[in-house]
């Protein structure tokens, strides 16, 4: 399963970011989110959404093989991760985020679908491979 986005539907409210942090970390902190919204203002006046499409580029470069595939979703084994951030550098969608607030492990999408269900604009979708 992986996320897809319809940019034109996005209103930039960022509820998806906050629910992502809550669902995956039980934190009220959108800086923990594994997706991103960018506003392009004043011109052209649009939003774009960056989501993980589970392409696996992160797993390919992980030097300690801490990123593994489970049910078509790439997940990070926090016990194995050394925090080298090689995966962050190669992510083509720029949605693997460096650790914050003292953590060691990067933040990566788990395809949990919380963002899909909260989005009031129906701009996010979870699709099967």
């Amino acid at each position: 399963m992986h996320l897809t986005a319809e940019h034109a539907k996005c209103s930039g409210c960022r509820a998806c970011l906050l629910v992502c942090a809550l669902e995956n970390f039980r934190e009220i902190n959108p800086a923990r989110a594994a997706l991103a919204i960018a506003g392009h203002f004043p011109s052209p006046g649009t939003f774009s959404i960056r989501v993980c499409d589970q392409c696996g580029a992160c797993a390919e470069v992980c030097p300690v093989e801490a990123i593994y595939l489970k049910d078509d979703v790439y997940l990070i084994d926090a016990q194995e991760c050394t925090g080298c951030l090689t995966c962050v550098d190669v992510c083509p969608n720029e949605v693997l985020f460096p650790p914050i607030n003292g953590d060691d492990c990067p933040v990566k999408c788990t395809s949990c679908g919380a963002c899909v269900s909260i989005c009031p604009r129906d701009a996010l979708h979870l699709e099967g491979d």
């Binding site: 209103s11 409210c13 960022r14 649009t46």
Partner: peptide, 19 residues
């Protein structure tokens, strides 16, 4: 109108951004 533009966590964006 180009896009609806919402405030933080707003499900009913009243902002209408346009040209």
């Amino acid at each position: 109108k180009i896009t609806d533009k919402g405030c933080y966590c707003c499900p009913t964006p009243c902002g209408k951004y346009g040209k």
